[in-house]
Design a protein around this nucleic acid. Structure first.
Length: 312
DNA sequence: AACATACTCAACCGCTAAAAT
DNA sequence: TATTTTAGCGGTTGAGTATGT
């Protein structure tokens, strides 16, 4: 024997909710709560609706503090970042955006944000191959990982550089940038003594750290505090082509693009975040890159541009 | 003004894991 | 332990609305 059936499917009302029904549901829940039992609720609230329908109506529309209307730039950024990281797990994404429902975010993504993104990332549509990387780098100590890197450990009180981006980043902002980790020891990030001899080819950026700052190297402007030129980058998953870099316009879409290019066949595509398990999500959710507390946007910029990225 | 097309978003569908019996 | 249902989730649909011709 199992549970009793939830409702008589033939006798429940379907379709749009009337204001009267909304009022009944709202009044009942405000007075009595859901009691953790949606199935029993319609009868108690004198509604000819399925419990499932009541739950959806409450969660997506009637619940207090629901935010309707335009999404902010910051919300865009969070959605893009999380979508790039964990895919279409709307409930997790919604949990990061107070007042927004998973349904709302899903609709917004499917109808607006995705298109917005496509419009600033023409490569997605063209399925363009990344540029070839010089042969001489094939034997570099770098390796491309198809797996998610562990979260960066950043000091929240420090400022970080991304070389060529002409600005400093707070830790949470920096964590949203493509992640570059030290080969052997994540904790060595920021340690100036760990710079090594790898140098990105001309026209490319490579990450670099300096003193307590991380830097994306290249352009000769980056140096380690131990005096070496170039930068230790350890495990690197991409090299950014210099001339295509939008310096001040490093956008909210960075992580999304980053994931999109991270395909082992080396082509752009949307086939992202396919195989993360719960543990991955937990790790990711604990990482600073998923923080919603800040924005890396230039306040003066209205137009958002994507910084093209390539990997080798 | 009338029609066609595109867009939005609330609601439903179907699936899975968890809970109840 | 097996069976049945619920809760919650992501995907899809379609009515209503906006925009274009």
């Amino acid at each position: 024997m199992g549970r009793a059936p939830c409702c008589d499917k033939a006798n429940v009302k379907r379709g749009p909710w009337s204001p009267e029904e909304d009022a009944k549901l709202r009044d009942y829940i405000e007075k009595n709560g859901t009691g953790g039992n949606w199935i029993a609720l319609p009868q108690k609230a004198d509604l000819k609706r399925c419990g499932k329908s009541c739950r959806l109506r409450w969660l997506n529309y009637l619940r207090p503090n629901i935010k309707h209307g335009e999404f902010s730039i910051e919300e865009d950024r969070v959605i893009c970042t999380l979508y790039a990281t964990i895919g279409s797990r709307w409930s997790i994404i919604a949990a990061q955006l107070p007042g927004r429902t998973d349904n709302d975010i899903k609709n917004y993504w499917n109808t607006k944000l995705k298109k917005k993104l496509m419009s600033v990332i023409p490569q997605f549509n063209q399925r363009k191959a990344p540029p070839p990387f010089p042969d001489s780098y094939q034997n570099s100590p770098l390796s491309l990982s198809s797996q998610m890197l562990p979260p960066l450990s950043l000091d929240s009180s420090s400022q970080y550089y991304a070389c060529g981006l002409n600005k400093q980043f707070a830790s949470h902002e920096f964590a949203s940038l493509p992640q570059y980790l030290s080969t052997n020891d994540n904790n060595s990030l920021g340690n100036p003594n760990n710079c090594s001899s790898f140098q990105a080819p001309e026209g490319y950026y490579s990450p670099l750290k300096e003193s307590n700052n991380f830097m994306f190297g290249g352009e000769g402007s980056c140096s380690c505090s131990d005096g070496s030129s170039g930068g230790q980058i350890g495990q690197t998953r991409e090299i950014i082509k210099q001339e295509e870099m939008g310096f001040q316009d490093y956008s909210i879409y960075s992580d999304y693009a980053y994931q999109c290019v991270e395909k082992t066949n080396g082509y752009f595509g949307e086939n992202i975040a396919e195989s993360y398990d719960l543990e991955d999500v937990k790790k990711l959710m604990g990482s600073t890159s998923l923080s919603c507390n800040g924005s890396i946007l230039d306040e003066n910029k209205e137009e958002l541009k994507l910084m093209p990225m390539y990997y080798f």
